[in-house]
Write a protein that binds this DNA or RNA. Structure first.
Lengths: 223, 223, 223, 223
DNA sequence: TATGAATGAGCTTTCATTCAT
DNA sequence: GATGAATGAAAGCTCATTCAT
């Protein structure tokens, strides 16, 4: 309640290292997400974290490293969210559906983190590109594996050379769809996942015919 | 450092405004594409354009404006490429196929321009955000219209609220696929377009069954 | 006359590169000599040079490089001063005497430059140590060569292993004597050189006896 | 980083003040000698002393004061070493010889302390300048007195105005010779002292003739 | 007493931008 | 029209120093 008045902000001094670190990361994620890597200033991050700049540097290093730490944390969250163990699930399609659903739910809850991961420029030379491309890669692999599994029973099982670009495209589609979602926030995470699943599984050819895809079971809540 | 080469840099003075402007834009696109908006320096652009900085500013204004001019030009090229008149085409699917094909061909020929459009950070506050989102919007609209048209004959015609997110996702998928392409450059533009068309039209459900989509006619070359 | 009033200092803008560079070096030498490398601030140097900091960096690079440039220039002056061609001189002793004389005269005229070279801390790790040790080395070599020449006629000619430490010690003695001189400025350069030459050539054993060394000819003025 | 070793760093708490102070000074001398006043950080000193920074400040004050304390201690050691009572010695020359010998032995044993005294930048404005110049002054006085004594029997006894600069030069020569010694560590302290004594007492004029100076007695070990 | 945690203040460096010629 | 030369303004980073426990 008093935190808002700058003059008397107690700044809760003397926090244990771990707490401060999380506090700083939270602030950094927020600021980086809002302004992007380049326009974010260490000053603003320090201020947002209610900490002085020397502490900022002492805890998480220079701007590059701080940003990378943010990406790493948020990427871990994301990958964990979509890769969570969901137990026995009937079909690969259902697997995929669940994971898409979990993805959109993750985004809904972790908006800042998502923007951090999604909205940075992707230019070689940036110190963080490596780290940024890694989460996409991991997400892609995860999906590619699912797709591969889905075709094992098929007459013509797909090789990774086929599933990989498909997975990459799906990731791209998901990212784009999230952006669209942000501008049409009335939809639920489930609705968005359904949309994407339909495109993906049925294809437009079938959608045109009025068919739709439906899950065969309820989405389990990841423990 | 370069003082020695002064003699061989004619700098072709006194060019007509139009030529100079194109010269500058070419250089700017190249540099912006290579380093991204933030890491690109006006110095490097001026040098690449073989022009002095004051001229750079005189012709195309400040960094923001210059970047926007670049985006505008490249976006126009792109939209023109995928929106080109392709005459009478049998089906909406073929229409889409043609346009995808033209898209990948555009990217192949216009790599720098494409990277300029695709690789910038997408953070509110950046002066160019508006301009950047516009080309995506135009591409999306174009595709959404196609999709809508494809369903007019269907029992349940789609409204824009349905086609639009689909189109947005498709654009995202296309962008991601291009990135994948850059890392697997052995494929042809046609091959990539085919890939995307298959995902899009058949969906994974059918692909799994071993079915594929094929165009019903040759791709016309846009004049 | 008006230079003193900061407000209306014209700052003589638009100087050709060469002039500016000298202007900057002059200022830098002055400031570095006054405060030492570490306590000198780029701000003060810029201000002393009547130039903005960006120009300072554009012309002579970062602080390290600037300092090294100063050292290099002043060291060159010094070495040139004591190594100048002095034509045919009767004996090695006279040679040495002339050079000592020229050394003290150099210091007198180039006080700031001398302090720059002499007063910096000599700690490994400093970026400039290399450069600083070089001038001492060159001076030492020059003197060692002289000493060696002086003994060629002697029954036991000296090897560099003997002349070198002697020369090093002489350089150290000279430096220390200059410091003493600064605190007793009434003496002339010639007087100081005479002092040093006496110590060096006669040694204390003879001085005690009341003997003195005298040059056999006038000091020529180096062209 | 070091958190893991906490168990094995006893830090011997609750030491008597005197012991702690010596512990700190030892560390400080080491660090200051290695990096110089400016590049030495209080952090490193505290760490080297196995003490926390607040304690560091509590015991020996701010960086300036700490450095001065170091200089004072090491200067005292040095002056004591070269000024030690050596009983009845035949001649002033022998006196000097003994003291030079003791000086080089001191340096050999006290390398860090010596570097602390010798290698700092000598710029007015540094807080420690006063203290640094003092030891030189004391050493100079000590030597000047010796020289004066040596000439009391001479036909023309020297006044301090003559011996003082000579002594200053000798100190400078000694310092320079020590640096040379560090780069040629094969020589003994006695050998170095001999070298310097020869230069000093005989002078180059006589050395050229192949003469050398020798002590008339063994160096006594200062108690 | 002893310290982990904290900061004010300052430094170097680098842009985008514009005079003055 | 064209440019070498110039700068305001701000960013990242680090240090000596001190609370609060």
């Amino acid at each position: 309640m008093e935190e808002h008045r700058d003059s008397e902000r107690p700044r809760s001094r003397r926090l244990p290292r771990e707490v401060r670190e999380r506090q700083i990361l939270d602030a950094a994620v927020e600021v980086f997400a809002k302004h992007g890597f380049h326009n974010a200033s260490m000053d603003e991050i320090a201020e947002t974290a209610s900490i002085s700049k020397p502490m900022l540097y002492a805890y998480l290093g220079a701007k590059d490293e701080l940003f990378i730490a943010c990406v790493r944390r948020e990427a871990a969250k994301l990958v964990e969210a979509i890769g969570a163990d969901i137990g026995e699930v009937a079909t690969p399609a259902d697997q995929l559906w669940h994971r898409l659903h979990m993805f959109f739910e993750y985004v809904q809850v972790n908006k800042a983190g998502w923007q951090l991961l999604h909205r940075q420029g992707d230019v070689p030379g940036e110190p963080y590109v490596q780290e940024l491309s890694e989460w996409r890669e991991r997400a892609t692999d995860l999906i590619a594996a699912l797709l591969a599994e889905a075709t094992t029973q098929s007459p013509q099982p797909m090789q990774s050379e086929q599933t990989e670009p498909f997975a990459a495209a799906l990731v791209g589609a998901g990212e784009a769809l999230v952006e669209w979602w942000f501008q049409h926030p009335d939809f639920t995470a489930e609705g968005m996942a359904m949309r994407l699943m339909n495109m993906l599984w049925l294809g437009f050819g079938e959608l045109v015919e009025g068919r739709s895809w439906f899950p065969t079971a309820e989405t389990p809540t990841p423990s």
